[in-house]
Nucleic acid binder design. Structure first.
Lengths: 212, 212, 212, 212
DNA sequence: GATGAATGAGTGTTCATTCAT
DNA sequence: TATGAATGAACACTCATTCAT
């Protein structure tokens, strides 16, 4: 369903999936290395294991590849996040687990997140909207995680903001790694950010902060 | 002093400054519109008000323009941030003022910040380091603002993290505007983020959150 | 074998040969007219019968074209020289035939030789070495022609020098044509130079000179 | 008289001479290093010790510089050759001295000669003619040297050819240095070429060749 | 006379895209 | 369906030349 925006002149849906997966894998490797603009379609085709002609049987423009890659990154994040969030245990402990898992996931996918930050602007307005929609869904998932575990009510805006803060704190671990990863281990980072979040949510007393 | 890394074949330092300012202004306009890669050197020259030949009298490569622009953005941010932070009144009120000013500044410079996020990767390793150094300085300024106003000690890591969080929350207002600016006014946003920060710093009790 | 130093992004070896032959022919025409530096790659492409894009599918830099042309000239000279020298009849008559053929060949290829004289310096050091090596082989061929037909021993250096003299006397016919071809017919030129050579080799008595 | 073909907007003849001498010196240095085409007018101006604006006060086009340089080289060769040839002693010994001096001169001016061989083609037809005329004069000087010392008559063509041969043998020492200067010392080279010349002139018996 | 900033046509080279096989 | 040779618009950058000061 998700890739259907991108037209292909090939009919066999199965084949389309296979080829596009090859393509996404190949392109992702290259985008991590040199970014979207510095990567040529020829390189993508080669890295994907087929010819430039074949590449263009499955996409229409180079931008399509970028969209496919962004979409795939979001898909991967969502899939892995759902696997954790899905648990409907509204406890603080569960909240902590979700957030911890989320941060670990962000650590795992640093380079992919970086691509989203740096290359989404190269998508056309239309396509970019589709990608941003995925971002909104991601925030929603965190909002749910927050809401379901709160022992007390919190204004909607606070939840939205907390979710967004946690989201970009996850991203930040990757895109400010040159600053953070020299001063924090991942575990430190998670622990501290989690504490800040809990305090902000009115769960843990602020006096505890810094005691760990 | 700051632009001296970029070589010019023109000797008149005064003139270099004038032309580079024109150039930065022109390039910034274009980069906001279409990004660095989609902007041609000819367009930069034209927008700056001179010929392509003249452009190259003041820089050596297109990347130089990007560096000049990034450097100029940082310079502007720093200048305006210093004007507020400089006040050496170690009170909580002062801290709130600094952060508020900082968020307002980030609102003002949304598009510039976006450029930093998206284009710094196009700089060469060497130049990128220089730019990231400026980022570190920015974080330091916020750390100072936090430290000087705290009524009690806080672990170094906590301060670093709080500063980084505030920093990217400021950035986020711009780069996630499609999400945040539909749900928050700038004033709301500042107020909420400030409260979260104060609580995290152990200053305001968490119970107050949401009450305002 | 000889053109393998120049990389092509086209895989079909047969096609590479065809296109490069077109290219060499086109470039040679232009180089004769206006020299290497004054000829643009676009002109080469056009004269060769294909687009600038296609040109660059078969070479990597403009210098490659020059190398291909120089290499081709040497190949042609060598091929045609070998056809005559190869005869292993160690007689003076044979020597005269070889030298005569060589001078005729140089007459035929005046403009090509001129290109070698004027443009080899534009090759990179590495490539230039490869071309000079061909020059050495050419001299060797003449040395062989001299050695095999001599009725008596001659010091190695004398043979080397005689070969080099004959070689550049052949070249000179072309590059000093503005002087020589107004005063000599090709036949005169050959006859005189041959006599000088024979006398120098101690074969013909010097008293004969000027008698013919 | 000689440089008058090149127009200057400066009136002071004395100054023109001074500036052009600086210019020739600077340009020559650069042409030896990187050839005419790879040298920019800016570089010439800088190496000459004045600005690009001043350069263009004394010439009209870049080609003028090349002409001035070629002309200066010829002037230098002629001046130094005349100093030797001028002696009107028609002896064989004198001939040998002249030729020896000539070869030494060619050794001295290898790089200048190389420039003549490689760059004259970049002159316009008109200017080129003027330069070739100088070449003819050079040949004439050698013809004179031959003629005056011959004990017996020789056909005009023989003299012309001998002069041309000696001339380019002198040049060859420089432009084929990669081949000759590995196998011959300058003294060897002169001695051998001189012997060949004498034999060709019917002066020394051919049996002597190789005995030295 | 001297300067050097300004100009813009021109250059080598790249690369997304097409299409005949 | 797959291939890869062909295309040419587009790009970053250079440099001879001019001219106001």
């Amino acid at each position: 369903m998700k890739e259907n925006k991108v037209l292909s002149s090939v009919k066999d849906e199965e084949l389309i999936k296979i080829r596009r997966d090859q393509m996404i894998k190949g392109a992702l490797t290259l985008f991590k290395e040199k970014g979207f603009h510095r990567t040529t379609t020829r390189e993508i085709a080669k890295e994907s294991g087929f010819s430039i002609g074949t590449l263009y049987e499955y996409i229409r423009t180079k931008e399509d590849v970028l969209y496919l890659v962004c979409d795939s990154i979001h898909g991967e994040v969502k899939k892995r996040l759902e696997a954790v969030v899905d648990v409907k245990k509204p406890t603080i402990e569960n909240f902590c687990n979700v957030i911890t898992s989320f941060f670990r996931l962000m650590d795992d996918m640093q380079e992919e997140i970086l691509i989203l930050y740096q290359e989404v602007k190269s998508l056309s307005k239309e396509t970019r909207s589709a990608v941003l929609q995925k971002e909104r869904e991601m925030a929603s998932m965190l909002e749910d995680a927050i809401r379901t575990c709160l022992p007390h009510e919190l204004p909607k805006q606070d939840i939205t903001l907390l979710a967004n803060n946690l989201l970009i704190q996850g991203h930040m671990w990757g895109f400010r790694r040159w600053m953070l990863q020299k001063e924090f281990t991942l575990e430190d980072y998670i622990e501290k950010q989690l504490k800040f979040a809990l305090v902000a949510m009115g769960i843990e007393s602020s006096t505890k902060i810094g005691e760990g």
